[in-house]
Structures are given as C-alpha cells and as structure tokens.
Amino acid sequence: MSSTTTQRTNATGKPIVIGVADMAVSKDPKAELITHALGSCIGVTIYDPTTHVGGMLHFMLPNSKINADKAESNPYMFADIGIPKLFQAAYELGATKENLIVCAAGGAEVLADGGHFKIGSRNRTILRKIFWKNNILLTADDTGGTISRTLHLSLADGTVSVRTKGQGQVLWPI
C-alpha cells in the first residue's frame, strides 16, 4: 500500500476517530480528531495555527525493524515510520515545520512486568529521539504512569486535551 496524504473529513460533524496504528490529517477548521485508549501506545498531534492544518497519529510500537512486512502494510503501527509520515502528510496540506505545535500523550506501562518490557517508556524515548534529531520541539505532553488516555485535537484553534478516567485537562494552549 502506498501511503501519501491522509485527509479525512467528517460531514456529520462528529470527531474523526483515529484507531490504534492509524493516522489522519486535515485542513478543515471544523474538524475534530480524537483517539481513545492510549495505553502503552502514544498519540501525537501536530497543528499549524496559520493554515489550520492538523493531524494525529496513534502508534503502537517504537521500531518497525521488529516486523518489516507489517511495517509496509501498516506503517502507522510504528513510531519510526509513522511519525515522519504524519509530518509529511501535514506538509502536503500546507503546514510548515516552523509553525507546528506538537503534543503527545500515552506511553503508559503495565503495573509491574519486572522492568523487562518497558514498551511505554521505549515509545516515549523514540518519540523524543526522532524529534531531537529533526529539531522539533515537543510543546506539551502527558505521558507515562499506568493510566489510559483519550487525546483530542480541535483544528479550529489547535486546542489539545487529554481525558483520563472521565476527567479532562487541556494540554495546549498551556
């Protein structure tokens, strides 16, 4: 599957739901993007306030080398492929790197797994590594712990909010 720009709109006015290992970008200022059940997975939002282009990725694992075949058919499963594709898709819709507000949520851990797996923390590490290598500033994040999170992005004004156990908080604007 060749993956270029993902531009989903929702005529019903309902939020566009980003599933696990999924991504969407839009330049519709009325669009709302949401992803549920971020456990060890991480949700990344990007938003350009000058063009109202925004996007969201829900990746599951840090590195695509674990399964090259699946990485080709489902690139949004992995941070190392999914994050660049998210940014590329937003650039194709007119976003510029300098303007982007970047937020992230998720990366939780199972309560006790003997410290052998750390899937959530490895997801957090690769996220920061990719951003650092590409000179991208993570504007705000809510990561770690053992909780599940729901991440929401409004393209009207770029508000990013995180909902945990029924309680919401605004991540951006700070």
């Binding site: 060890s40 797996f117 712990g145």
Partner: peptide
Amino acid sequence: CLWAGLAVGYDGLQYHLAPHVKESLSLNRR
C-alpha cells in the same frame, strides 16, 4: 492486549504480568 491498547479503560494498565508466565513463555521485549 493491554500493551496494544485494546480494551484499555478506566482500569488502565494496572495489572501484573506473572513472573512464572514471563519465564515459561520466554517473553522478552522482542
């Protein structure tokens, strides 16, 4: 399933992986 984010609700990831299961199934990062 918890790691993959399936059916993670208000309970979050507040569960243990039993050490004897990790050993017997040779579960590691990879």
